[in-house]
């Protein structure tokens, strides 16, 4: 498991640095803007009022955007959760199926490593990669405290990141699970990303539309605290996210135990290439290459 963990972590290194440093710079930039915004508080409030609540709903509501928690939501956590969520989805879905589709998993699994060790080694590397990205992001915020002039313990700033980690783990676990259920990684990524964006919209719009409140109860974004975690973590929400994460991971692990390892994506689905002929013959839609066709090449 350690070999697979270090191998996978090495593969994530550039991703951790790329995403982490970018987020860190965004955080630092955001913190540097805080003081000027406070100085122009009156103009900012009238500007936000002009945007209207429909618009501000997508940035954490915006009613208290000059408090540290509100500002973090407004400037970062509201939308960056979706951006980082895309990373979580892509790498979650590709954790094992990515290598399977590339054909490299076949040879790796021919070595004396159990499916359990392979699964948990890679998953652990993935979790550490997410933690690394969020840690670098936190460094950006922590370095920016003097620029923003906040009287806050830098370690308290870790709390919103912790809630984001729980959200990203859930999204990644869902993508991992779907990658084993759907015979196409691309489709698993699309579906997971679609659910993430839909969840973002539902939770954002539920702030201004009471009819969405029930639907919002099923949205993971509702349980992501973001900046409001500065006032303390809602442990029910946090553990709820982790609970569902564990559930999807467990399902994925069980599916991987029983899975036939595919070679080079055999039996996978691809979206049909569009042609006018297809419009008239829907039977051409769907599977591009069946396993039967693929096994003819073995």
């Amino acid at each position: 498991m350690i070999t697979e963990f270090t191998y996978s972590l090495r593969r994530y290194l550039w991703q951790i640095l790329g995403w982490g440093i970018t987020f860190s710079l965004v955080a630092l930039y955001l913190m540097s803007l805080y003081k000027p915004l406070v100085e122009q508080q009156a103009q900012m409030l009238s500007l936000l009022k002009a945007y209207g609540e429909n618009f501000m709903a997508f940035f954490g509501g915006g009613s208290d955007f000059l408090s540290p928690g509100g500002y973090l939501d407004f400037g970062f956590f509201s939308y960056m959760s979706v951006v980082a969520g895309i990373f979580a989805v892509i790498f979650g879905a590709g954790l094992l199926v990515g290598d399977e589709e590339k054909g490299t998993l076949d040879l790796i699994m021919a070595h004396p490593i159990s499916r359990t060790s392979l699964f948990w080694g890679r998953l652990l590397a993935y979790v550490v990669a997410l933690m690394g990205i969020l840690l670098l992001t936190w460094v950006g915020f922590a370095l920016g405290i003097p620029l923003a002039g906040w009287d806050i313990n830098p370690f308290v700033l870790l709390l919103p990141h912790l809630t984001m980690l729980a959200l990203l783990l859930l999204i990644g676990a869902l993508a991992l699970f779907l990658s084993f259920v759907i015979p196409s990684r691309t489709l698993a990524v699309s579906l997971s990303a679609g659910l993430l964006v839909a969840s973002y919209f539902v939770t954002s719009l539920a702030r201004i539309n009471n009819q969405l409140k029930t639907l919002n109860d099923f949205s993971p974004m509702k349980y992501f605290q973001g900046g409001s975690a500065l006032d303390g973590i809602n442990w029910q929400y946090f553990l709820g996210l982790l609970g569902f994460t564990a559930f999807f991971i467990l399902l994925a692990w069980l599916l991987f135990q029983r899975r036939d390892i595919r070679v080079g994506g055999e039996g996978g689905w691809t979206l049909p290439k569009f042609s006018w002929d297809m419009m008239w013959d829907w039977r051409k839609w769907g599977k591009k290459e069946t396993i039967a066709q693929k096994t003819k090449d073995d």
């Binding site: 593969r11 054909g103 076949d106």
Partner: peptide, 24 residues
Amino acid sequence: PGELHFDQNMKVEGILRYFNQLRH
């Protein structure tokens, strides 16, 4: 395997050492 695929960005020695580590 009949269809051989490796991690494209690794060196030959790196991939062989990785396989060797999997074999303890």
